[in-house]
Design a protein around this nucleic acid. Structure first.
Length: 278
DNA sequence: TTCCAGGTGCATA
DNA sequence: TATGCACATGGA
């Protein structure tokens, strides 16, 4: 990968396995929108615009923040080659080979995926935006996702006004628990223990804990099973339409091992774009 | 109007 | 341990 920087724009040449659309629209991120031909992304207390392989930012920010955020230091061809041993996965990867797993904020992932339950993606994005506008830092052209301290000022009625619905009580519980359950310290735990700790929060079950550990803690051996993944796994790997989620998880680990998380993202993108199993 | 969405907690058997 | 239901909200 060649990084060409000039005049506050960074262009990546000969970059393999990176596509901004696929990376943002594979279901891991909520704070982005396509404006004309550029994606506007709010993360890391900043607003970033990206068009294809061009990042509108300084060289310093790109190297210190975005290179890691977009996981551009990692060689994805190794991961893809391993996963391609499975013929179905090979097809899914051909479809979304530019997906990168973002390194996102732990607290933001916790609250975002609590909001995601029994909700649609456009609505999830709207609710997260409402919360950011109400409690987050004004960045000029948008609002950062609130910090623990900022969101701790919220009460349940205000959260309901942000359209969180029945999840407002779960967010309140999360805010209470993160006082004693230091999200950064949890990073020292092995993945199974990390998930168990996260599940002590009301409103965090198997699926949400897996999403937080995958997207917030970079635990790529996590395999969140939602309706889409369940549908596509049943469509391709099982005959039954009501396969037990524990069985799907066990089989996914057997097939994809330490690369489960990547496999999950390739499948999710493939399933949603192609509406497979629907 | 009715159904359902990147699920989870709770009651019941 | 397994199953069924309620839960806020809004778009199709």
């Amino acid at each position: 990968m060649n990084i060409i920087s000039n005049d506050n724009t960074i262009t990546l040449n000969e970059v393999e396995n990176f596509n901004i659309k696929q990376t943002l629209e594979c279901g891991q991120a909520f704070r982005f929108e396509l404006i004309n031909d550029r994606y506007k992304i709010i993360a890391k207390n900043k607003i970033l615009y990206v068009k294809e392989n061009t990042f509108y930012t300084t060289k310093k920010d790109f190297e210190e923040i975005w290179l890691d955020y977009f996981d551009l230091k990692k060689d994805y061809s190794l991961i893809q080659n391993k996963l391609c041993e499975d013929s179905i996965m090979k097809k899914a990867i051909e479809y979304g080979k530019g997906i990168r797993i973002l390194n996102q904020d732990k607290f933001e992932m916790l609250i975002s995926f609590i909001i995601s339950q029994n909700n649609r993606i456009p609505m999830i994005k709207k609710v997260i935006n409402n919360i950011s506008e109400k409690y987050g830092t004004d960045l000029g052209d948008g609002y950062a996702f609130p910090t623990v301290e900022q969101l701790s000022k919220a009460n349940i009625n205000e959260l309901m006004e942000c359209k969180t619905g029945f999840r407002a009580k779960y967010i309140m519980d999360a805010l209470e628990k993160v006082n004693t359950l230091d999200l950064n310290k949890l990073d020292q735990l092995p993945t199974p223990e990390l998930k168990e700790k996260l599940k002590e929060i009301n409103g965090v079950g198997d699926k949400v804990a897996n999403c937080i550990s995958l997207f917030g803690y970079g635990r790529c051996d996590s395999f969140p099973i939602d309706v889409w993944i369940k549908r596509i796994m049943e469509h391709f790997y099982y005959n039954s339409q009501d396969t037990n989620k524990n069985i799907i998880t066990a089989d996914a680990i057997k097939m994809f091992g330490q690369y489960c998380g990547y496999a999950q993202q390739y499948l999710f993108y493939y399933a949603r774009e192609e509406k497979i199993g629907k």
